[in-house]
Design a protein around this nucleic acid. Structure first.
Lengths: 139, 139
DNA sequence: ATTCATTTGAAACATTGTTTCATTTGATTG
DNA sequence: CAATCAAATGAAACAATGTTTCAAATGAAT
């Protein structure tokens, strides 16, 4: 599905920066940091617009944010199958060496039985450490 | 156990700012943000020293950081029982309304079977949303 | 083509965290 | 108890991330 189609489908206004943002994420196929997105967007990138787009596209259920770390946030496209009320269902692994963020699809987030009155709007299971690639390079 | 005892016990040099930091956290009994700690420490607070203390005390296993949000980190004393190689074993709930961070001791983090080569140094299960108190006030 | 609400981009601002370096402090030793 | 010296502190400059304001541009609809 093209970036343009995605915006249409979610009834979000089609603008140049939004299309460029989605395309950057589609081409990467892994979660990207703001800086990585900036590099891919070139002169189409603007800081304020980027943060506003993130807001809009998150609310629309097109993308989601992953807080890898207090100083490292990554952004990824949603799987279309997940539909509108999107909750990420798998864990993420953030390598403190190479700063790569892995989607660990094999680790599903457990069912969360919250105390009554608490509403889960979003949740993250983030594991931080050293990834396999960096580990083998250290040896 | 006094702040002074804790530092002795973990063989960390006893300094005025470190003692004040630990005392602030002991009195609060809930995880605090930097700003809340700053208020409690008064003139004993200094930004650079605070961040260095957080580093030192975390490495020593005296405190731990909880990344509630990309722009909200909370700090809490470790339970002494948990010993040295401390991994937080429960979920946290962060209310986007009141910014309170709840330790949900009833929700234990599942066992994490990482792919081989990946090392879990720390992990967080953070749930974000609206807490019971804020929910009842909204009605 | 015209309209008009929405979005954009630039700049100023706020907050969080790090680094540098001269000064101070707190354990240790005599 | 005084001297020592590595370790820690505090102040300031810096870097990165995120927000707000407002005039100008744009895209969807008629």
């Amino acid at each position: 599905m093209t970036a343009s189609d995605i915006l249409d489908h979610h009834q979000v206004k089609k603008t140049t920066p939004r299309v460029a943002l989605i395309q950057a994420m589609q081409e990467a196929r892994v979660p990207l940091s703001e800086n990585e997105i900036k590099e891919r967007m070139g002169e189409l990138y603007d800081r304020a617009t980027f943060y506003r787009s993130v807001q809009t596209l998150s609310s629309a259920g097109i993308i989601h944010r992953i807080v890898a770390d207090n100083v490292m946030v990554k952004y990824a496209l949603n799987n279309c199958e997940n539909g509108h009320h999107h909750q990420v269902d798998h864990a993420h692994f953030f390598c403190r060496q190479c700063h790569h963020l892995y989607c660990l699809k094999s680790i599903k987030v457990q069912t969360l039985d919250l105390p009554s009155g608490f509403v889960d709007e979003e949740h993250d299971l983030v594991i931080r450490g050293i990834c396999d690639q960096c580990n083998s390079q250290l040896k």
